[in-house]
Amino acid sequence: MAKGKFGGLGGGMNMQAMIKQAQKMQQDMLKAQEEIAVMETEATAGGGAVKAVVQGTNVLKALEIKPEVVDPDDVEMLQDLVLAAINEAFRLASEKSEQSMKKVTGGMGGGMPGLF
């Protein structure tokens, strides 16, 4: 009887090892996702005049505006600072999330959609 690529004892052992490795990766990915969900990232704009804090789940958790930056004659500047702080906080959170997932996936692009 001819033994194929996965035939015989050695092939079965390799398949079991691959399954165990995939299961461990799945557990590690779930753990990383849980850590990302509670991770907080903050960013400021205007030299700290506006601070935004976001969670890894892309939720704005806090927004602080120093009173001295509130000028009724220049609402546009305040709006720009708020947007800049929030967008930077989200960008940093996304970057941190990607780094966390790369540790688990070995840089395979944040996971394998549909596999887990």
Rank of each mutant, 00 (worst) to 15 (best):
Gly114Glu: 05
Ile65Gln: 00
Lys51Leu: 06
Val50Ser: 00
Ala85Met: 05
Ala43Gly: 05
Lys61Val: 13
Met108Glu: 13
Gly12Leu: 15
Val70Gln: 04
Gly114Asn: 01
Phe116Lys: 13
Met18Ala: 14
Met1Asn: 12
Met13Pro: 09
Val53Gly: 01
Gln33Thr: 02
Leu63His: 02
Asp80Gly: 01
Gln55Phe: 12
Gly8Val: 06
Glu68Ala: 13
Ala37Leu: 03
Leu78Ile: 10
Glu76His: 05
Ile19Cys: 04
Leu115Tyr: 09
Gly47Asn: 03
Val69Ser: 09
Met39Glu: 03
Ala17Gly: 11
Gly110Thr: 06
Glu64Pro: 07
Ile86Cys: 08
Phe90Ser: 01
Ser94Asp: 15
Ala37Lys: 13
Gly109Asp: 03
Gln23Asp: 02
Gly107Leu: 10
Val104Phe: 08
Ala62Leu: 08
Ala49Arg: 06
Ala37Glu: 06
Thr41Val: 14
Lys66Ser: 12
Leu63Ser: 02
Ala37Gln: 08
Glu95Pro: 07
Lys96Pro: 01
Leu9Arg: 15
Ala93Phe: 00
Gly46Cys: 07
Gly11Glu: 06
Ser97Arg: 12
Phe6Gln: 13
Glu88Met: 05
Ala49Leu: 13
Ser97Cys: 08
Lys31Tyr: 06
Met1Val: 15
Asp71Arg: 07
Gln55Ile: 02
Glu35Met: 07
Ala22Asn: 00
Leu9Ile: 15
Asp80Trp: 03
Ile86Trp: 08
Gly4Val: 10
Gly56Leu: 02
Met39Ser: 03
Met77Thr: 05
Glu95Ile: 11
Leu30Gly: 12
Val70Asp: 00
Asn58Gln: 12
Val104Asn: 01
Gln55Lys: 12
Ile86Lys: 04
Val82Gly: 05
Ala85Trp: 05
Leu60Pro: 04
Val82Arg: 06
Met108Ile: 14
Val69Asn: 01
Phe116Val: 15
Lys24Ser: 11
Ala32Met: 05
Val38Gly: 07
Glu95Val: 12
Gly11His: 09
Met77Gln: 03
Ser97Gln: 11
Gly106Arg: 11
Lys5Leu: 15
Val82Met: 10
Glu98Ser: 14
Gly106Tyr: 08
Met15Pro: 03
Leu92Asp: 10
Glu35Cys: 08
Ala22Ser: 03
Gly56Val: 02
Ala52Asp: 01
